[in-house]
Write a protein that binds this DNA or RNA. Structure first.
Ligand SMILES: [Mn+2]
Ligand SMILES: [Mn+2]
Ligand SMILES: [Zn+2]
Ligand SMILES: [Zn+2]
Lengths: 154, 154
DNA sequence: TTAATAATGATAATCATTATCAATAAGAAA
DNA sequence: TTTCTTATTGATAATGATTATCATTATTAA
């Protein structure tokens, strides 16, 4: 979402302040959890992990913070079809970079992949440019998922 | 989902029977509604439209039927971020063919697009082949969304 | 400090989706 | 047809993820 001071899209930490938000203990803790996992955590997953270190932090705050992180572009929110939203740091030191997902419709397993990204990126750029022009749409992000059956499930 | 008699992936109508399911009045009515709109209907949207012609058909049946249609591949289920699932005939006489979506994060507007699909299709094929091999994943479908701000919202 | 305001967390409320289960409808058998 | 067997339906209640409230607490600026 819009950065209140007009700065670019920063990542993590003090970047919060660039939007006029406070980087509080709960927010820091939630960022830490997201930054130290490769899983696709639900709000409750996140809450449980945060809870181990900071038992006082509530589920409501986790929901609120995740939403804030999504709005500021620091976190991506996904729906993999299991009835709860899943969150993932959009970028970070320990995190995997930009990637797409394979979703097993059998067991729900998610595979991050970055293969073929080069070709994809090139095409996506062209596509985004064309779409932006034709539909006068300001594209800020894209989402690609492949659905199918994983090794075990097929 | 799997076709009980081993036939290919058919569309609409009597195709139901190929799976051992009955093409009942409610199911027919729901298919008719989906087949006569270009909107991305939620379960309740669908119910309301069905209700005008068949007031006896209940919301539960709409949910069940939509899920069945999704499982049999006749309908795609989407999450555009507004808290309810959206459904669209995967293919049909009056429907638009395979396409992807532009999602406005401002007002929720959805734009179907088929532009650049040729290039996309080619790349997707290659990508799917590569991913299938590398991860031993049987890919059955893909989902692409571009998120951003529409004309009005930017 | 103190004042002004942003953030938090316990709780209750929403609301889309599912589970139940008795009543019906549809297809097969007689 | 008539009967039998089973799939389907719909009213209702239950579930469960997410949000709204609101009094309390933490943070920042004066
Ligand atoms: Mn991922
Ligand atoms: Mn569409
Ligand atoms: Zn699987
Ligand atoms: Zn818009």
């Amino acid at each position: 979402m819009p950065w209140k001071d007009g700065t670019g899209p920063p990542w993590l930490q003090g970047k919060f302040k660039g939007c006029g938000y406070r980087l509080t203990v709960p927010r820091q803790a939630i960022l830490d959890v997201l930054n130290s996992t490769t899983e696709h955590l639900s709000a409750e997953d996140t809450y449980l992990k945060v809870h181990k270190v900071h038992p006082a932090i509530g589920l409501t705050t986790v929901y609120r913070t995740l939403e804030l992180l999504v709005q500021t572009g620091m976190v991506f929110k996904f729906d993999f079809g299991d009835g709860r939203a899943r969150y993932e740091l959009s970028e970070g030191p320990k995190g995997i970079g930009h990637h797409h997902h394979l979703v097993c419709t059998g067991c729900g397993r998610i595979i991050d992949y970055t293969d073929f990204i080069d070709e994809e990126v090139e095409l996506l750029k062209r596509t985004e440019k064309g779409l932006s022009k034709k539909y006068n749409f300001k594209i800020t992000n894209h989402m690609i998922q492949f659905h199918g059956l994983c090794e075990k499930c097929q």
